[in-house]
Design a binder for these strands. Structure first.
Lengths: 208, 208
DNA sequence: CGGCTTCTCCACCTTATGATGGATATTTTT
DNA sequence: AAAAATATCCATCATAAGGTGGAGAAGCCG
């Protein structure tokens, strides 16, 4: 028998992480060699152990999953990383794949699918489910928000008024309204409250 | 050696559920006798197997965790249920404990704490962490929303305008504004967008 | 380079939102 | 049963939010 696949598991929820570890260690050709609870730790542990495959959640303290993937692949361009997360909206999916993730699985998948995906990615293939491709297409469809619009959107979600946003960004209130108008139509909604909820739903911004 | 504690694990995320099962089954005096992926299934499985302790997530399809707890304890008032969830805001905590949960753990707890809590609750004790008590006190502090206010708040989060809400509830727009004014002050915020985000944060309403 | 698009910015006008005050039930307390 | 508290309802007024049109600056392509 050949060497088992060496895996790094990254998830901030200890119970979940230990559970996945226990699950994977019941499979003969897989072995979990390390764990990490946040993005910073993931980068360090990856540098030290160079796992064959990394299983990574996206919602992480300190450094988010997508950013962690970017940084890890800067150090180690051949790193094979599978995102394993609860659905966080198309924006998160997009950023993770953009960052170089080779697979994207929901926590709703079962152990067989998971191990199968690990072996696929280890073998150099990608594992992107059909519905993820759909979501991506969906995102591609809509025009992207500009930097300024995103800044305004973040503050809308934070509950700030147009006047406050104008002060934050050192621009006039009228300009803020222009940006809002623009992002409203890009998001396909008609007021700031809808903008806030859909932004949260699509993972464009987070409450934390 | 005495009989092991018989456990039911309820979680809609298959990977997480199977992971927790794998984790618990490595502990000698614990045995997972059944699993469920939603509230409806949890009730049926509980009826059939009568586990000693139930480990339940709150965010579940079909029937939510808190409602499932209520229904299970109607059938079986001695049922011992531990909520194991990611933090969902004080409202969810409150409803779960109200419904008769004996423990409330975050998924950030580790395996030792988890098994310890299971044994405690099996022995008839409660396991409510200090910070949960805090959150409860916090919730108690603020006045509760009336039925009408909650209906309005749900629609605000759904992105509906005052006029639309008035139509939905068959009341005048002026009345909707009164309810909004009232719930704004109760939530301690100053506009509908803040109301929406804090309602989501506190778990008073959900996006699904 | 000139034309093109895109982003950023602002002013004006209309409408939706939130504040205030108060009326009428319904329930709880005394 | 009377008094007090609570929930529901509505009207008026000031302000914040959204719609529309357009100007200047930065980058892109022919």
């Amino acid at each position: 028998m050949s060497e088992p696949i060496r895996i790094l598991v990254v998830d901030d929820h200890t119970v979940v992480r230990q559970g996945i570890v226990a699950l994977l260690n019941t499979v003969p050709d897989l072995t979990v060699i390390a764990e990490a609870a946040d993005g910073q730790e993931a980068i360090e542990v990856h540098r030290k152990h160079r796992p064959d495959v990394t299983l990574m959640d996206l919602r992480l303290p300190k450094i988010g999953g997508a950013d962690a993937i970017t940084l890890i692949r800067q150090e180690c361009p051949t790193a094979r990383i599978i995102v394993l997360t609860t659905f966080d909206g198309d924006e998160d999916i997009f950023r993770a794949l953009q960052a170089g993730a080779k697979g994207y699985l929901l926590k709703g998948t079962d152990a067989d699918e998971l191990t199968s995906a690990i072996r696929s990615v280890y073998a150099g293939k990608s594992r992107i489910p059909a519905f993820v491709a759909e979501k991506l297409a969906e995102r591609m469809g809509g025009p992207a928000l500009t930097t300024r619009e995103l800044e305004v959107l973040k503050r809308i979600v934070a509950g700030r008024s147009n006047k406050e946003i104008a002060g934050d960004l050192h621009i006039s209130e009228a300009t803020v309204k222009t940006h809002i108008n623009s992002l409203l139509s890009k998001l396909g909604v008609s007021d700031r409250t809808q903008a806030a909820t859909t932004a949260l739903q699509r993972g464009i911004v987070h409450l934390d």
